[in-house]
Simulated assay, not measured.
Amino acid sequence: MSGKEMTTVIRQKISNRILVAAGFPVLGAVAGWLLKLLANWAASWPWIPWEGPVELVNNAPEPVVTLVSLLVGALAGGVLVLMAEHGYVTVTIEDDQVTTDRGDSSQSVSRAAIHGVFADGKRLVVLGERGQELAVESKTEGADLPTVKQLANGFQTHGYPWLPDGDPYQDEYRRWVEDMPGLPVSGNALLKARAEALNKQEESNVAELRQELAKLGIVVRDTGKRQWWRRVRQADEQKEHAL
């Protein structure tokens, strides 16, 4: 975290990033070496499913095959490091706005629109006046959000409404099942498409469908591959809640 001209930048701890950057290539090299040993062992079996590749590895001269297996494993680990770096979230908090960056995507929300911020360890959510989600960042495979403590300190330092107890609309969510009542036809269709995208682990499609649902006033969250939804409060409902 660093402060300059009332700006706080929160990102994954350097120590964690160094550990990932150094550890994944080493683990990849070890995995490559173990696969080479497995191939040597499998060559003695009476029948193996990938006989050609196994024989190729087994008959390759040493130390070339060992060096190549270590190099390929290390390169695979390096790819995972790049994927992790691309997935890290950076949160920039200023007195007049909040910006989240992940890879090539960026979201900015003005201070005036923000009525609540919370994190549950897996998600950072910025809420609007009617409970709509103005920005959402979730942990991805191989890359985490900054810690809840980091986020809480950053938002509280700038006077944002941090919600330490988490989502204030927790009890309003209903589990989605196909063609359930209470949703517009288009909402059910979008949730069905999103369920398929969740099953296929199509992260970009899942995020885009979340945005389409938001246009209908529907907020969605996930537990595994199950979807839960709630409606955004209308203006008159929000006034009653305030009273």
Results as ranks from 00 to 15, higher is better:
D101K: 15
K122M: 08
D120T: 07
V79L: 11
V64S: 09
F118W: 12
M83C: 06
S110Q: 13
N59K: 13
D101S: 13
E62C: 04
N58M: 05
L82C: 01
S108A: 14
G78A: 09
G121C: 09
G121R: 11
G73I: 01
L71Y: 02
V64I: 13
G77H: 05
S69M: 07
K122P: 01
V65S: 11
V109P: 04
F118T: 03
V64R: 11
G121Q: 08
V91M: 07
S110R: 13
A76W: 07
V98N: 02
E85V: 11
L127V: 06
N59A: 12
I114S: 01
F118Y: 15
D96M: 07
V89M: 13
L70R: 00
S110T: 15
R123I: 00
A84D: 05
G73W: 05
P63S: 10
E85A: 12
M83G: 01
D96H: 10
M83W: 13
K122T: 09
A84G: 07
A74V: 07
A74T: 04
E129V: 00
G73L: 05
L75P: 03
G121W: 11
L124I: 09
V81K: 06
G131H: 05
D120W: 06
E62D: 15
A74N: 04
G128W: 05
V64A: 13
V91D: 02
V64W: 15
S105A: 10
P63L: 10
M83I: 11
L70Q: 00
E94N: 14
H115S: 09
E94T: 11
S69D: 00
E94Q: 14
V68D: 01
V89Y: 06
L82M: 07
V125H: 08
V81I: 04
L70K: 06
V91R: 04
N59S: 14
T92C: 01
A119H: 11
A119E: 04
V91N: 02
D101Y: 11
T99F: 04
A74I: 01
V65I: 13
A60H: 07
L67V: 12
G87P: 02
G128R: 00
D104F: 15
H86Q: 14
K122G: 12
R102N: 04
G87A: 08
L124E: 02
L80N: 08
L80E: 09
S69N: 00
A119P: 00
G73S: 02
T90M: 11
V81A: 04
G78Y: 01
